[in-house]
Design a protein around this nucleic acid. Structure first.
Length: 504
RNA sequence: GGCGGAGUAGCUCAGUUGGUCAGAGCGCACGGCUCAUAUUCGUGAUGUCGGGGGUUCAAAUCCCUCCUCCGCUACCA
């Protein structure tokens, strides 16, 4: 079994922000989870480095575009590592392998009679670098203006077109047969209604700038961003060699994207692929956006969230945990210092961390730091183990559908039940009355701590590794294959220290 | 305008086919324990389930209508 997951490639026109971190961590969580399942995982991210904006920014900065993107791309690559994300490849669209792949894809589309040369005409705003439809414009003094007041002019530009209109029925059919191919459900509905509203052929080349992948045999044109950029998902696994091991093993991919670029991934991209005789993606998952302390994030307001700032203040795992526990994956969320502090304290410090701490120190003090396996379970113990089993299944079901928040919640519920169990069994009382029974209770709880740590490993890898090594588990070999509900070996505990300090 | 989603405790939200569905977490109040990172456990309070009307023995759950919010309605990415 294999699992291929991608982030969008990030545009090298600015420094990374919370949105980039969010998408990348989402993929990392799903990648790590699938590794725990024993699947062969391929996790791809990278940078999208072409286009008019980059060309212009580079010019403004008085450097050539390649130098410009070299610098910016590094920031994104660094962020991936600093977020503790285990990628398998970092692709850049300026790499020769990608240019080769994109041009091959183009030629394939040409060969399959999916591309023709014509003219793109419309009202164009130089200031906005965008075309407008007439119904988007208002007439001021006999001249059309955009809502923002920019003037527009009628522009006619030679362009290659992709025969998107031909794919309308096939896309509808594909999505009706694969209702899970777009998530969440509301996004699926949106895309389907968009397609049903009719598809026009798509302009897929530009002549107004040069910084892009050249159209084969016509150097006047560079490829439209979405042919160039989306092709990266193929490039990384060896396209155009579709018979190589990687391609065979991993395609089709699951694409995690922001809701703003859903259409490109869910309409254009599958059409390009089918037109080039390649299977459409397995799934496209659109996530939401973050606000900052209740406010929409924008550069002009100046409230862009720098991931490094959050990590430095709250910790990396705390940040990762908050992003995916706080908000249903797919919804918008609000980031605030108060909510991350509350969330981390309630779930990680108090519920999980304190359970680990109270049990581990108890074992160190009262059991000579060691706990032995046993099968001598009473009904209370069996009940809790049954809950472990149930929550583990819930957790997997949710993760399999990218419902990361719900899967985390399942583990938290298990940990709450365990805290209740500890209070009810009261090992500190058993210490005086029934030492044997006390050992059993501790053994049951240790099992839950270890299993919960493994379940949470994809979300908070560094902290859970600390916990697992505190219990002397083999942290280089964590997976679900050996996930027996009860551990069969003696557990020795190293001197415990709080893993999740409370945030004040 | 069209299509779609949503309005349930202070906050974030669960509520399958109408009949323990009035709930959870956080927050708050009180109490217990003291193994633990002043942590944990228990108990409790607050809601005309957006408004109005209707169907039914019975509706947050079905129908009608109104109000509010959000998303999509193609070529910057």
């Amino acid at each position: 079994m294999s699992f291929y997951i991608t982030t969008p490639i990030y545009y090298t026109n600015d420094v990374p922000h919370i949105g980039h971190a969010y998408t990348t961590i989402a993929c990392d969580i799903l990648a790590r989870y699938n590794k725990l399942l024993g699947k062969e995982v391929y996790f791809l991210t990278g940078t999208d480095e072409h286009g008019q904006k980059v060309e212009k920014s580079a010019k403004d900065a008085n450097v050539n575009p390649k130098e410009f993107v070299d610098k910016l791309s590094i920031n994104f690559k660094k962020l991936v590592l600093d977020l503790d994300c285990e990628i398998d490849d970092f692709i850049r669209t300026t790499e020769p392998r990608h240019i080769k792949a994109a041009q091959f894809l183009w030629n394939k589309l040409l060969e399959n009679d999916q591309i023709y040369l014509s003219n793109y005409e419309g009202w164009y705003s130089i200031r906005d670098e965008a075309f407008y439809l007439e119904n988007e414009l208002t007439k001021v003094d006999g001249k059309f203006k955009t809502k923002s007041g920019s003037s527009v002019e009628w522009v006619k530009e030679e362009s290659y077109f992709f025969k998107l209109s031909k794919w309308e029925d096939k896309l509808i059919q594909f999505y009706e047969n694969n209702p899970d191919a777009i998530s969440p459900k509301t996004r699926y509905n949106e895309v389907l209604s968009f397609i049903k509203g009719g598809l026009k052929d798509l302009s897929i080349s530009r002549t107004t700038f040069e910084w892009g992948v050249k159209v084969p045999n016509n150097n006047k044109h560079v490829m439209y961003v979405w042919i160039d950029a989306l092709c990266n998902y193929l490039t990384s696994i060896g396209y155009p060699d579709i018979n190589n091991d990687k391609f065979i093993k991993f395609w089709p991919a699951i694409h995690i994207v922001g809701k703003d670029i859903l259409r490109f991934h869910a309409v254009f991209w599958p059409a390009f692929l089918m037109a080039a005789d390649i299977d459409p993606p397995k799934k496209i998952y659109a996530h939401g956006w973050w606000t900052n302390e209740g406010q929409k994030i924008s550069k002009s307001i100046g409230n862009v969230i720098d991931p490094y700032e959050i990590i430095n203040e709250f910790g990396l795992d705390q940040f990762r945990y908050f992003l995916f526990r706080e908000v249903p994956f797919g919804n918008d969320g609000d980031f605030s210092k108060k909510s991350i502090a509350n969330r981390v304290n309630a779930d990680l410090s108090n519920n999980f961390g304190n359970l680990v701490q109270r049990i581990s120190t108890f074992i160190v003090k009262n059991c000579n730091s060691s706990i032995n396996p046993t099968n001598n379970l009473n009904n209370d113990d069996k009940e809790l183990i049954k809950n472990l089993d149930k929550k583990f299944n819930d957790y997997k079901n949710y993760m399999n559908n990218q419902q990361i928040d719900k899967s985390i919640k399942s583990v938290m519920e298990l940990l709450s039940l365990t805290n209740v169990y500890v209070d009810e069994q009261a090992p500190w009382s058993l210490k005086k009355t029934d030492k044997e029974r006390m050992q059993v209770v501790l053994f049951v709880v240790v099992n839950i701590i270890i299993k919960s740590s493994i379940m949470l490993f994809p979300i908070i890898p560094k902290s859970t590794k600390k916990i697992l090594s505190m219990f002397n588990m083999d942290i280089n070999n964590i997976n679900f294959n050996k996930f027996d509900l009860l551990i069969s070996k003696n557990i020795i505990i190293d001197s415990p220290s709080p893993i999740f300090p409370r945030i004040l």
